[in-house]
Write a protein that binds this DNA or RNA. Structure first.
Lengths: 255, 255
DNA sequence: ATCTTAAATTGACATAGATCAATAATATCG
DNA sequence: CGATATTATTGATCTATGTCAATTTAAGAT
C-alpha cells in the first residue's frame, strides 16, 4: 500500500521533464537542494552523485575523519550528534528528507551522523561538490536557505535545552516529531494523521536529544499518559490526544 | 591610546583602493560580509547602507516585529536571545564584529537582539538587501559562510547546554569569550593579551547564556578562583591563570 | 509456544543546581 | 565625599533530575 503510493508519485513526476532516470525517481527532487536546478544543471550534478544506503544504527560520518562526501537525505532519519571527551553525548539535530548533511566548504565535520532508521542518501564527493556549488549560485542559494532553516531550529533547541523542564522538553519533542514525520509522509505521498505516529527513537535516543536520562524521559511519558495528553501503544506508537495542552506545555505561543 | 591605534589602522586602509569614505574607514571592511566585494559592488551596496548606534542595553530588534533592517556589526557586542511565553529567557548567540545580524530571506526574526555594550552597526533595508544578495553570488557566498560558522557555534553550545555541568559551562564561556574578545581587539589594531579581558556580561547575562541562575554562576566563579584557574579584579576583569586546566574542564580535546 | 535478550518502567535514594534570604562589593548620584 | 542603588557573593534550604536497582514489557530466536 505504501509502495504503491510512492510509485504513483514517481510516475507523476516523470511527466515533468527529461531528468536523469535516477533523479526522476528521486523522492526529494521537488523539494531538496536540487529543486532549484534545471534539467541541464541537474544532469551536470548527476554525474558526480551516488546512491548509498545505511541500515538503522550505521554510522554515516564521524567527527574526526575528513569528510569525503556530502549527501541529501532521500529516505529515513539521520541523527547528528556531538560527544564530549569523556563520552557524554548530545544530539544536535535530526535530519529528515530532503535535508543536506555535511559541512559545506570544510574538510572536517564537527559532529557524528548516524542512521536512526534505514536511510537512503544521494552522495556527492566533497571537492567536486564544493567547486560545483561555488559555480552554481542557484544551488548555493538553495543550500543557504536549508542552512538558515537548520540554524533556526538549532536555536529553537537551545531555548529548549537551556530553559525547559523535563516534561516540557518531552512535549516539545513530540510536537516537533509529529510535525516532521507528518511532512515526511506527505512527501512520500502517504496518508498521514498528524497526531498519530510511530516514535522511531528509543528512550536512549530521546534522552540524548533532550539532555536528560532514559529514566527521566520515561517518567515524563508516564506523566503525559496519566494527564491524558497522549496515549502510547507498544511503547512506540504515539497518539496525541490533547494537542492544545501539549502545545501549551511546549511554550507555543498560540495554541 | 586605544583611539590612536584605531586611527592609524584606518589611515593604513585608505591606501588600498577607492572605496567610499565610509567603507574605507570601516572596522570590518577586510573581514566582514563586504570583504568579498570589489570596489564597484561595494559602491552599489553602499547606496543602501546606513550607520546606526546603540547604547548598551538598547533593543536592536525584537521577536514579533517584522525585520526592517539587517546589519553588520562594526563595533561592540550584540546579544541574541529567545524567550518563552512565561518569561524564561535563553541567550542563543553573541554577535561580535564582523557578524551579520538578522534572518536573511525572512520577514520575521525569531529572536531578540540587544546591545550588550555600546554598538555600532551598518544597516541594510531588508527588501533591497535580499534582492541585492540574490543578484550578487559573491556576497551571498560570504554570508553563507558566516551562517555556517554560526551554525557550528550554535551546535557547540547545544552540547554545552545539554551535557555540561555548571562549572564546565562557565569554563567554556570564559574560553570562548577570551578568544572572541582577543580577535575583536586585534581587529581593531589594539594590543591584546588573550588571557586577560574584561568580562562585559553581568552575572545575569552569563546565566541566561549558560542556562543557569545568577547564584550558580557566581559560585562557579568562586570555585575557579579557589582552584587558581582564574583571578578576577572588580568582578569584571578576568585573568586566566591556568588555561590548560580550563581547557580540560571545557572538554577541549587538545589542551 | 517458550526461552532469551533488549528496552522501558517504576521505585528508592542521592545530588547538582534552584530558590529564598542575608550580606558584601561596586557603581552612581547628589 | 557619603548616601543610595545595583550587582555579586555566600549561606541555608528545597526540588527536579540523576543514579542505582528491581521489575515489567516487548521483540526475536529456536
Amino acid at each position: 500500500m505504501h509502495n504503491k503510493n510512492v510509485i504513483s508519485l514517481n510516475t507523476h513526476k516523470s511527466n515533468c521533464g527529461s531528468d536523469h532516470p535516477v533523479c526522476q525517481a528521486c523522492e526529494v527532487r521537488a523539494c531538496g537542494m536540487c529543486s532549484e536546478l534545471d534539467t541541464d544543471n541537474l544532469h551536470e550534478l548527476r554525474k558526480i552523485t551516488r546512491l548509498k544506503e545505511y541500515k538503522a544504527g550505521d554510522q554515516i560520518f564521524c567527527d574526526d575523519e575528513p569528510t569525503e562526501n556530502y549527501a541529501t537525505i532521500k529516505n529515513g532519519i539521520v541523527k547528528l550528534s556531538k560527544i564530549l571527551p569523556d563520552g557524554r553525548q548530545q544530539t544536535i539535530g535530526l535530519g529528515f528528507p530532503p535535508d543536506f548533511i555535511g559541512r559545506a566548504f570544510k574538510d572536517k565535520n564537527s559532529s557524528f551522523a548516524s542512521a536512526l532508521t534505514d536511510v537512503t542518501v544521494c552522495t556527492f564527493p566533497r571537492e567536486l561538490f564544493n567547486d560545483y556549488l561555488k559555480a552554481t549560485p542557484t544551488l548555493e542559494h538553495k543550500l543557504f536557505e536549508l542552512t538558515l532553516n537548520e540554524l533556526d531550529s538549532a536555536r529553537e533547541w537551545m531555548l529548549m535545552l537551556g530553559r525547559m523542564t523535563a516534561l516540557e522538553k518531552v512535549a516539545a519533542l513530540l510536537l516537533n516529531f509529529s510535525e516532521r514525520l507528518h511532512n515526511a509522509r506527505l512527501l512520500q505521498g502517504l496518508e498521514s494523521e498528524k497526531n498519530k505516529f510511530e516514535l522511531l527513537l528509543t528512550r536512549a535516543e530521546i534522552s540524548d536529544f533532550l539532555g536528560l536520562t532514559i529514566e527521566t524521559v520515561s517518567r515524563q511519558f508516564s506523566l503525559l499518559k496519566q494527564k491524558n495528553l497522549i496515549s502510547i501503544q507498544n511503547q512506540r506508537f504515539i497518539d496525541i490526544t490533547d494537542r492544545p495542552a501539549l502545545d501549551k506545555l511546549a511554550g507555543h505561543e498560540n495554541y
